[in-house]
Amino acid sequence: MLEARLAQAAVLKKTLDAIKELVTDANFDCSDGGISLQAMDNSHVALVSLLLRADGFEPYRCDRNLALGINLNSLSKVLRSAQNEDIITLKAADDPDNLSLTFESQNQDRISEYEMKLMDIDQEHLGIPETAYAAVITMPAAEFQRICRDLSGISESVTIDASKDGVKFASAGDIGNGSVTLKQTHNPEEPALSTSIELSESVTLTFSLKYLVNFTKATPLAGAVTLQMSNDVPLLVEYKMEGGYLRYYLAPKIQD
């Protein structure tokens, strides 16, 4: 059986908000290491990889591996009933038909109990090769969100150019063109506000802004975001949170 108690409902609520528009149904794979999810969008352009490590829960118990098939829209509806500060407990039997969710207020004067039907999802896991990326860019998550939103007003696509001079986000469309260049900064007092660029070679890749804007729904989960890129391979966008991560992979646009 699974029993996982999470101190802050907000973590799960924000996580669901960050993935539910990309993925409709997904298996939450529960093991003694924690709860993970890997799912692609319908067009196979983007992939979401979530890990909530066991040590992020207190307590966490999972006797044997379970795949909880969940409609993310349904889970999101149920989680709307949880306050951000509530303590959430997830429970499932071995071979479950239902997932039980309990929301307790901080001072335990209100306990809400929900049961959600599970579904059978036949999901293929893709093998994601270990990649030593040529460019690793860490920047404030809010900055990345703003850049994607602003450039999406100009074009459907953005070209990200990482070089020793900085990282340049550039878009060109019918109304004109625009770009934002970030230089490396150091803000030792607030590392989350710094931009760092580690580069082994220059990288230039073009991506759909529709997907990137979607990924930035994870902004409330983390102060910083890391973009990892190599020429001709998918982009990795990672939001690290306490007790886990939310990663997105995005296939590049290629020359016709």
Binding site: L47, L126, S157, T206, A251
Partner: peptide
């Protein structure tokens, strides 16, 4: 602005 590729060419099915 180029053709959208998919992840299937990059990531392997097990």
């Amino acid at each position: 602005t180029g053709k959208q590729s998919t992840l299937l060419g990059f990531f392997n099915k097990p």
